[in-house]
Design a protein around this nucleic acid. Structure first.
Lengths: 346, 346
DNA sequence: CTGAAAGCGCTAACAT
DNA sequence: ATGTTAGCGCTTTCAG
């Protein structure tokens, strides 16, 4: 029985030997420091620090049936949105041992639940972070809850577990957009919304309609178009709206990708921005400052949302189950209009 | 000694018991099927398939000292580039048990090597994929090689291990850009290049100069500006070039982010595209079709590059070390000019 | 408060 | 060709 010191890598056994205790005691110092006598604990902690010992994640994963992976699960079609979420999550995970793993998914696949569950079963991730629209799948959430799998959802509506969700008040964003355009002097305002399968579509549209109503304005049926939250659909919808007999002087697009599509369609149709048309987007992606003239957009703090989601997930660990009293409700992040070049279209 | 059947999860022991063999035999079927008698092997494989058994990655990771993680290591400032690489890698990893993990880094931090090495030591990833510019760090590569860590690099120049790299011929891209602009009738052509710390900067500029020379044209010193591969620097450099006495009729930007900056600066300066100015970018990100008028760009098949990198990494596994004869040289992917709205500026 | 022994699920040496 | 034994590095009984 030789003590096989694998090249350089220091293990819990080494620490135990040096401290003259059993490895279980070291393990206790690592996981439940309060159960070890102070003197022993301090000595062990000193040695741990001195040698920069970090417990091996693979061994922990095997013993605990829980790895250090945090999976980002997304079906959101906007690359910019995903990148921002990633950045936020990364900033929260920096310095921890947790790793962010990418898991795109496709809700239209019949076995998409199975794929996610298979991943969870196989890799035992520490936690999952869901972004819209997959975050709105309550059936999936229920299945994961049953497995006692940690997860946090990013959504614009209240989900079945408000303590474990990050919320953006998209309806308020819609209201802001409406107020902004009306106050610019517009009366004939159109809206290109996202797919009906996204709750954000409903929230943003609802808020927008409410905002118009504050000024006794209605969203006429011929002023509505359904897009797909991507550039091409924005072009298509805007073209339709702009070539119609009764064309709008302002368009509120459900997200920036589509708003840029509106810009493109306007240029093609000879409609001048901002003289003939005002455009408001949603998300405040970098693109808003890259088009010309710079675009007005409802700023949605996507990166902060990602960071908050990851932080909430990590916090879940520290607290014992049921000890979530200090997270009484969904974390909600505020939106604001970032007004770049507001002008009245006449 | 009770047989603890953990809820539903089927292990190698279960398979062994059902097949009436030892678990080591099952392990052999999994890892070196040829060393097991055909009849036994077929039977075991049947059972494995019937129960959908997949070996537990955490246990394998512990025993093999190698996890199923594939880390994407990047310091590239362009989000669009990263997203495309991610997509490519994901497409190659789809259906495998490998997971893509994100590891951004910052070469300007003095301990950035240590951080990457610490990650490798702690998590024992199966492999790493490096994108420029961090892919060009030979010192880091040497340190990893010494640890026998698998990795593949994406670069525009030949690295010290050409069999494990994906190469894009950026110099050729530069030549294509030059030919394109000259053939459009331009003579006064400027270039906004990236940071000197990126090899792609040199390659693209070098190729561009060579391309001009084919037509006996020179790249005059006042026609060069150094950007940072991002939008803002593109705006800044283009503004400088366009407001100068002797302004160019065409600009080749080192990447699309900067090219969009050129568009912005041109609009601001009242310079009309394509009438007064032609612009060529590099990368062919989605942005090229979103600006107006659509931009011409050297198409760099970023997504395919990502996929090839991941495929190469996985292939490394199958082949025994030194058995790389059928990968004689770097995988090189071709570039092409995607011409959107080429017009002669007069 | 601490330790010995067993186990997480798999693979590597060394038998047979 | 197959099985036995001993790990990988950590945690969890259950004694003491």
């Amino acid at each position: 029985m030789t003590i096989q010191r694998s090249e350089g890598t220091i293990t819990i056994n080494d620490i135990a030997r040096m401290a003259g205790v059993s490895k279980k005691t070291v393990s206790r110092v690592l996981n439940a420091p309060s159960t070890v006598r102070e003197k022993t604990r301090l000595e062990i902690q000193r040695i741990i620090k001195e040698y920069g010992f970090v417990p091996n994640p693979q061994a922990q994963a095997l013993a605990l049936r829980r790895s250090t992976l945090i999976a980002l699960i997304y079906d959101n079609p906007s690359p910019q949105y995903i990148v921002n979420i990633q950045r936020g999550v990364l900033s929260a995970l920096k310095g921890t041992q947790y790793q962010i793993v990418l898991r795109p998914c496709d809700r239209s696949e019949p076995d998409y639940h199975d794929k996610i569950l298979a991943f969870v079963r196989l890799h035992n991730p520490f936690g999952l972070i869901f972004v819209p629209s997959v975050s709105e799948d309550e059936e999936l959430a229920a299945a994961l809850r049953e497995r006692k799998q940690h997860f946090v959802r990013i959504a614009s509506v209240n989900t079945s577990d408000r303590a474990k969700q990050i919320k953006t008040d998209d309806a308020e964003g819609g209201r802001l957009a409406a107020r902004h355009l009306v106050q610019l002097g517009h009366r004939k305002i159109a809206h290109i919304h996202g797919p009906e399968s996204f709750m954000s579509t409903h929230q943003r549209r609802l808020g927008f309609i409410e905002g118009l109503r504050e000024f006794d304005l209605e969203l006429a049926p011929n002023m509505i178009a359904e897009g797909a939250y991507n550039f091409d659909s924005g072009v298509k919808c805007a073209t339709k709206l702009l070539l119609a007999k009764d064309r709008p002087t302002a368009i509120f697009a459900g997200n920036d990708e589509m708003a840029v599509g509106v810009y493109f369609a306007a240029r093609k149709a000879g409609v001048r921005i901002p003289k003939d048309l005002s455009v408001v987007g949603f998300d405040d992606t970098p693109m808003v400052s890259r088009v010309w003239p710079a675009m007005t957009s409802v700023r949605s703090p996507i990166q902060e949302v990602g960071r908050s989601a990851a932080e909430l997930l990590l916090k879940t660990d520290k607290l014992k189950e049921g000890d979530l009293k200090d997270i009484p409700d969904a974390v909600t992040l505020d939106l604001m209009v970032r007004d770049s070049t507001a002008h009245i279209a006449t």
